[in-house]
């Protein structure tokens, strides 16, 4: 009987703490929008964060995109040639990248590189009382620290995803045309004819924008909510990667379903 009570007590505590965290996250999102006006008055803060989250992520994005594009080129060619349509390799690479892999892989890399950096930075600022010091100076940490990072993430993600897709296509081209010997004209013309701006490219951009919002919010909230200890910051950083990755994949399914059915 006691074991059963303990089980229900633990279950209740777990549910309560999750609901409380969800409430705190919602409150943080609300406050970000409330303080965004103040934050935009110091636009240099947002620009600085775009540099840290976006520009500093470029290397990992470009290198990964190139390899992903090359792998797509190889895999696509060996599958398509069985059906005698190896010229469609350009379309396959472009569509796979623009619709799916570009936004999803960029978001996963973003969560791993920029998301963890955001969580660790804010968590440490909290642990070293920098956020409290700011509060005591009558400066809102939401306006000064959180909102600029949020908008930077939202701006950087679609740009990074677009760069990922472009570099990925280039990787596919390098494998398909100079190495395998697919006709260059067929590679580009089929891509041009079959990739639709409104449906394919825009859907990829919308996805990356949504992933940008989700990843950045998760990273910011985990940092802001982290217990002010070394262990607390470390756990928060891990949670950022895990939660962001799951959120990206789940959101990808939901968004794809809407886009295909709509």
């Amino acid at each position: 009987m006691k074991t059963l009570f303990n089980f229900f007590e633990k279950l209740g505590n777990s549910i309560t703490s999750r609901v409380l965290r969800l409430g705190a996250a919602t409150r943080l999102i609300f406050l970000i929008f409330v303080y965004s006006g103040d934050s935009f008055k110091r636009i240099h803060l947002t620009i600085r964060e775009v540099y840290f989250t976006g520009v500093m992520s470029l290397v990992i994005i470009v290198v990964s995109a190139f390899f992903v594009g090359m792998v797509l080129g190889l895999q696509g060619y060996y599958t398509l040639q069985k059906y005698g349509s190896s010229e469609a390799i350009g379309v396959l690479v472009a569509l796979a990248l623009v619709r799916e892999l570009g936004p999803v892989v960029t978001a996963l890399l973003f969560a791993g590189r920029a998301g963890t950096a955001i969580t660790a930075e804010i968590g440490l600022m909290k642990a070293t009382e920098q956020l409290s010091a700011m509060e005591m100076m009558a400066v809102s940490p939401i306006a000064r620290i959180i909102a600029p990072r949020f908008w930077a993430g939202v701006i950087a993600m679609p740009i990074l995803a677009s760069i990922f897709s472009m570099v990925g296509v280039l990787g596919g081209y390098v494998v398909a045309v100079p190495i395998i010997g697919v006709d260059e004209g067929a590679f580009w013309s089929q891509m041009q004819a079959n990739v639709d701006f409104n449906f394919d490219i825009m859907s990829g951009l919308i996805k990356s924008l949504v992933f940008g919002v989700a990843c950045t919010i998760i990273a910011l909230f985990e940092g802001f909510d982290a217990p002010p200890t070394a262990e607390g910051v470390s756990r928060a950083t891990t949670r950022t990667v895990v939660t962001s990755s799951l959120a990206i994949l789940a959101l990808d399914f939901v968004l794809t379903s809407f886009m295909i059915s709509g």
Binding site: T128, E129, A133
Partner: peptide, 20 residues
């Protein structure tokens, strides 16, 4: 109101809490 009051205050934190 609290922010107005805090503008009258300065606080030194235990380890300084300088912005790193």
């Amino acid at each position: 109101g609290i922010y107005r009051l805090r503008r009258k205050m300065g606080m030194l934190f235990q380890h300084g809490a300088l912005f790193s």
